[in-house]
Nucleic acid binder design. Structure first.
Length: 1048
RNA sequence: GGGCGCUUAGCUCAGCGGUAGAGCACAGCCUUCACACGGCUGGGGUCGCAGGUUCGAAACCUGCAGCGCCCACCA
């Protein structure tokens, strides 16, 4: 690559330039090809669900390609011999319709004008012209498909497999031809399988009743009333059915009615299966040629089948006076004629089920015709067993049930289609109608020897060839090395919308012909919808075009977005803002690398574990975080939890690496400690390299680009010349001590930043009076070692770190933060708003009291102590201790402030309330009242209390081995308690406000606006109890630290 | 008619027995020498409703409600 030696990057990430660069590079080196002769590496194969050859990439394709590419790239980097097979589907009806449409538009011709042969030539031309488009689009997405193996469902190899399967199934008696009712699309002029019928409920339908006069009236009984939703079918009625046990009609069974329009008499039959005596009149008109139920009745009773609606949806000659009319016109005509004869018995609204053609949306017509079927039950049984035995498993698991339910109730599969584009059925007829099924055109009729043979004109259902895809593409029926190496495939990744159409058929065919399931795992991805959860459609205008997105935001951003949104069992609602967000992430990664490049000059990366280098606590921390990110990412990928994998890397890169480590490393890079700098360089390189590797399957382009630049900077030892050939990071042990040990440093920095934020001290103001104390021994050492970083990250000068757990001095004009295992005092002489600081501390103490109450109550409950696991109880005890310690420290600080300034009335009230809190339990604290009354003694009293508190705290810290840990966790609880307090206050205030007047018109602008937006209740809460929800100084640090530590 | 899924912060969603989270959006501060596609800080949640199990439920069970999807030959 010409640019391979660049060691600098542009300021911002430009995806267009980068994404163009790498696909040809990968192809050239043959990285995507799976070697069927490779015995050294385990195989991992996927067949891409073949998109329609006419298709253009939509988000469904983008999703499926992304997820499969993530798997394939991950496995490839993990040492597998991967093979991902591309191809396209001829898509019978869809393609034929498109070409017909074009033909009509450009030449005003129908396919019949051209004739079969000429038309098919046109379709092939079309295929040649546009068939590669979708492949190119997959390349733009970065899909690492094995193009050498690209297939088409109608190429010679696939066609041969289709004929072979057809012939064998026919020989086995599993394919047969029969005349029965099928779903017919009058618009597409073809039979359809059950699956291609879209069921719908027509609410504007009606149930119309009319009378059939008895041929021989019998006293009062002169007619029998039947009901129908399809009046036109009465022209094909050949019986009226009643329930055999129905007393009303028992006497009529066996007698006849007269057809009022056609010259025909119909028998009245008894049928217990068809007729529900409670529905309608309890008498049913029977139309064997146009209704599936009636068809069965007809067979049971030997009734005549009269086809009155033809393949074009018009009435046939058998419809007598209505012959030639459209079926819907005929419906109205029939009603009119019957009414004229006085036989109309009224209509009522009725919701009727309608079947529509999946393709054309035309209302389908059950039609009697000769079609080919697959006898499916014998094929389904083994496919059910395979799943029961776990040979193939579904993810998410719930789809197992869907699959099973359908398979157990499966109907024979109508496979013939009256189309031209497709695999023509390998059956030939002689003049006498004998059928010869053969792999190639036979010379003579197998039955009578006639040489006058004509091939069946129908073609096979598209899904017939798709069903063979996993093995037809690998050379079946030959016993190829490719099949031996890559069949069964490892994963079938597709949408749940084609679980029956495709997945089930592949299972049946694969097991039957290969003797082995076609895939070990079926991962069914969610459907992509728009941000409101609606299906994307051109008419709604809510389609997000992946090609536009790729152009605008980059393929990497699109891929990452799709992966990050792919949670199991939920549709994806995609908003463009999400993609924007992940484009920003790509830019972040770009700039992190850019930063590294600027600071790695002269650094030569060695292929040794960075943990072997002498490193600082910060270095050890990011190395531990890196390993955790690796572990979590790999675990998520193994479980097909794409969203988790993506989010893990995202958080690691942006949070740990960029927000923290890079900032920490600056101190090393810009300082003059050569050893520290070298360690930081090695560490940063390792962390960044790992991030690139982890990300590669999700964002192949940018990671490849950055890999090359980084590699050029730090030397090539152990770095392949493509990230694609590098090893995926492996799970390993996380240095939890290093993660935990750094917690106080992070906590202290965040605590100081928080004080800045809350006290309105801009970052550029250097804090020159900072004391850090109450540290445990190891924490003290770490903080001392990393003090330079604390200085830099919090813009502090000469912070004092106190020894042996000593607490910071009590001084006025200061803000104090108490965190887990540390306490920080920030002197803000002249800059502090004491009232604000005092109020802040008050609120924190109020929260602590809430927590103390809650934990105290829990621990006072004997059954909790007795029944809960000891660790849990212990944890709560430690937390109680933490809370108490913290409260004492804050109280001491507050007392100090109280001494510095007159306390407001509001605060007094609050303090008094706190003192009255019975769950407080700590009676030693200095009551505020005392402070007020004896101002002169305060200093001494406070000092005494503080000493006690510190002593107690130190004891606690030493006693509990995990003091720091539980402390960090303890801090998190503040949040909940605080919220609880707010909630209670809200409830009270809401109750109080209910009767109060509406918010005044002239209220402050911003709250008023929010109030309007959020509704009265919340607005009230906002106005009245704003402050208590304020967080404590270090809580965010604690939260993050806890999150960082992870739960394991 | 049968089945499945969903209901958690304004929005999109994680979490699925032990201290309510993320991204975006929002507010304040910051044009600090990787990144304004940026940084720091903050505000915002009776985890759909009602019962039950449990020491403990957003999580498990039951019922209900709303939304969505799939399957289905009742005229």
């Amino acid at each position: 690559m010409e640019n391979d030696n660049r060691t600098e990057l542009a300021k911002g990430y430009e995806h267009r330039e980068v994404e163009e660069r790498w696909y040809p590079f990968w192809l050239e080196r043959g990285y995507f090809h799976g070697d069927e002769n490779d015995r050294t590496r385990p195989p991992f194969s996927i067949v891409l669900p073949p998109p329609n050859v006419t298709g253009s990439l939509h988000l469904g394709h983008a999703l499926t390609a992304t997820l499969q590419d993530v798997l394939i790239r991950w496995k490839r980097m993990s040492g597998y011999n991967t093979m991902w097979l591309p191809g396209t589907d001829h898509a019978g009806i869809a393609t034929q319709m498109i070409v017909e449409k074009e033909l009509r538009k450009t030449e005003k011709l129908t396919r019949h004008d051209l004739g079969r042969e000429a038309f098919l030539k046109r379709v092939w031309q079309w295929k040649e012209r546009y068939g590669s488009r979708i492949g190119e689009q997959h390349k733009a997405l970065g899909a690492s498909l094995d193009w050498e193996r690209e297939r088409f469902t109608m190429d010679e190899q696939s066609s041969r497999a289709v004929r072979e399967v057809f012939v064998r199934l026919h020989e086995e008696g599993l394919i047969y031809r029969e005349k029965k009712l099928i779903n017919w699309c009058p618009d597409c002029h073809t039979a359809l399988s059950d699956l291609e019928v879209e069921h719908e409920e027509a609410h504007q339908g009606e149930l119309w009743s009319f009378a059939y006069p008895l041929v021989e009236p019998d006293g009062a009984t002169t007619e029998i009333v039947v009901a129908t939703t399809r009046p036109e079918t009465m022209l094909g009625d050949t019986a009226v059915a009643v329930h055999p046990d129905d007393e009303r009609y028992r006497a009529l069974v066996g007698r006849k009615v007269r057809h009022p329009i056609l010259d025909r008499e119909l028998p009245i039959v008894a049928d217990g299966v068809l007729v529900d005596p409670k529905f309608g009149t309890g008498a049913v008109k029977v139309t064997p040629a146009h209704d599936f139920n009636d068809f069965e009745v007809g067979k049971r009773h030997g009734l005549e089948q009269i086809t009155v609606i033809g393949p074009d949806g018009r009435m046939t000659e058998a419809a007598g006076p209505l012959a030639g009319k459209d079926r819907f016109e005929a419906r109205q005509e029939v009603k009119r004629i019957i009414a004229e004869q006085g036989l109309d018995r009224g209509a009522k609204p009725h919701v009727l089920p309608l079947g529509r053609c999946q393709r054309s949306q035309t209302v389908l017509e059950p039609l009697l015709s000769d079609q080919w079927y697959v006898r499916i039950e014998p094929l389904a049984r083994p496919a059910i067993e395979a799943v029961e035995q776990g040979k193939t498993r579904f993810i998410p698991e719930q789809w197992t049930n869907t699959y099973m339910a359908w398979m157990r109730n499966i109907h024979d599969w109508c496979i013939s289609r009256q189309l031209w584009w497709g695999h023509q059925i390998p059956a030939w007829y002689c003049a006498d109608g004998h059928v010869t099924v053969a792999r190639a055109a036979p010379d003579a009729c197998r039955t009578c020897g006639s040489r006058e043979l004509r091939q069946d004109e129908d073609v096979l259902d598209t899904w017939f060839s798709s069903g063979l895809w996993p093995f037809s593409t690998m050379g079946w029926p030959e016993d190829t090395q490719t099949l031996r190496t890559f069949y069964p495939t490892s994963v079938m990744e597709t949408g749940h919308d084609i679980i029956f159409f495709w997945v089930a058929r592949m299972m049946m065919m694969g097991i039957h012909f290969m003797g082995e399931v076609p895939f070990r795992t079926v991962y069914l991805h969610p459907m992509v919808r728009d941000e409101k959860g609606l299906k994307m459609s051109k008419t709604k205008g809510n389609v997000i075009d992946p090609l536009v997105i790729t152009e605008e935001y980059g393929a990497d951003a699109l891929r990452f977005t799709l992966a990050a949104l792919t949670a199991q069992g939920r549709d994806i609602k995609l908003a463009v803002e999400r993609i924007e967000g992940y484009r920003a992430f790509a830019n972040k990664l770009w700039n992190a690398t850019r930063f590294a490049l600027m600071n790695l000059e002269g650094h030569v990366h060695r292929a040794v574990s960075p943990t072997k280098l002498a490193v600082t606590p910060a270095d050890r921390w990011i190395l531990a975080r890196t390993q955790r990110a690796v572990n979590d990412t790999v675990a998520a990928l193994e479980g097909f939890r794409f969203n988790e994998a993506a989010n893990t890397v995202y958080q690691f890169v942006w949070g740990d690496l960029c927000d923290w480590y890079i900032e920490l490393a600056k101190e090393a890079f810009y300082g003059d400690d050569a050893g520290k700098k070298a360690a930081a360089q090695a560490t940063l390189t390792h962390a960044l390299k790992t991030a690139l590797l982890l990300l590669h399957p999700f964002m192949p382009f940018i990671t490849e680009e950055l890999w090359h630049v980084l590699r050029a900077r730090v030397g090539a030892e152990g770095w392949p010349d493509s990230i694609l050939a590098a090893s995926y990071p492996r799970a390993g042990e996380v240095d939890e001590a290093a993660e935990r040990g750094f917690g106080p440093v992070i906590g202290i920095v965040e605590a100081i930043r928080n004080i800045r934020g809350e006290m309105n001290v801009p970052f550029k103001v250097v804090l020159e009076d900072v004391e850090i104390g109450s540290l445990a021994r190891e924490a003290e050492a770490t903080v001392r070692e990393e003090l330079g970083r604390v200085h830099r990250l919090a813009n502090v000068k000469d912070a004092r770190v106190l020894s042996d757990g000593a607490a910071p001095a009590k001084r006025g004009q200061s803000a104090v933060a108490v965190g887990a295992g540390f306490e920080v005092r920030v002197g803000l002489a002249g800059a502090i708003d004491l009232a604000a600081e005092s109020a802040r501390i008050d609120k924190e103490i109020a929260k602590l009291d809430q927590d103390l109450a809650s934990v105290g109550k829990k621990l006072e409950n004997p059954s909790f102590v007795a029944k809960a696991p000891p660790e849990v109880v212990e944890k709560d005890r430690a937390r109680l201790a933490e809370l108490r310690e913290k409260k004492h420290k804050l109280e001491a600080h507050r007392a100090m402030i109280s001494n510095s300034e007159t306390v407001s009335t509001r605060r007094q009230t609050m303090e008094n309330q706190n003192e009255q809190n019975p769950t407080n339990g700590e009676t030693q604290s200095t009551p505020a009242a005392t402070v007020q009354e004896a101002a002169g003694q305060v200093q001494t009293a406070v000092a005494g209390a503080v000493e006690k508190v510190v002593a107690t705290a130190t004891e606690i810290a030493k006693a509990a081995s995990s003091a720091v840990v539980s402390g960090i966790e303890g801090l998190r609880k503040e949040r909940k308690s605080a919220r609880r307090a707010v909630k209670k206050a809200v409830a009270k205030k809401t109750a109080a406000k209910k009767t109060a007047a509406k918010p005044a018109r002239g209220a402050k602008k911003a709250p008023a606006r929010k109030a309007a937006a959020r509704g009265g209740k919340k607005a009230a809460a906002k106005r009245t109890v704003k402050a208590p929800a304020r967080k404590t100084a270090a809580k965010k640090g604690a939260r993050k630290a806890a999150a960082r530590r992870g739960k394991k």
